[in-house]
């Protein structure tokens, strides 16, 4: 089973993820801020990371930049999720493999987005 990490500070949003990913063949870990996210990623290497962008202290884009500097996370696929469109964040697409998930999203979009990345992995 693939390991997913979701960093999302909005608890209501987290609940939506839970609902959608419930029963899917992933083992999902949820954390609600960047610091915890970093801690989790140090403990273990996840197969895919979903980052909310607008978070206190360590924002998603900052976290993403940090990840790309990390030897273990250089290549790990990252999905950035935000209610703002991807044009707003175009700048860091240049930094590496990253895709956008615009909120709101449906269960189908979420799962196909995740699978897209996990498939290219294997």
């Amino acid at each position: 089973m693939k390991d997913l990490l979701i960093v999302e500070d909005d608890l209501e949003m987290q609940e939506f993820y839970r609902n959608m990913l419930n029963g899917e063949p992933f083992s999902v870990t949820y954390v609600s801020n960047g610091e915890e996210g970093l801690k989790k990623m140090k403990e273990k290497k996840y197969d895919l990371v979903i980052l909310d962008i607008m978070m206190e202290n360590i924002t998603g884009d900052r976290l993403f930049a940090l990840l790309r500097k990390d030897r273990h996370y250089k290549e790990v696929p990252v999905i950035m999720a935000s209610s703002l469109d991807k044009e707003t964040y175009q700048c860091f697409q240049a930094l590496g493999k990253v895709s956008f998930l615009e909120k709101p999203f449906t269960k189908e979009t979420l799962i196909s987005e995740i699978n897209k990345h996990l498939q290219t992995l294997t």
Binding site: D10, S83, K103, P104
Partner: peptide
């Protein structure tokens, strides 16, 4: 500008997702 847009869009997004459920 970004924050205000975010502030307006986030509740709408969540409401849409709730309605979808």
């Amino acid at each position: 500008i970004r924050d205000v847009t975010h502030e307006l869009k986030t509740p709408v997004a969540k409401m849409e997702m709730a309605i979808d459920m």
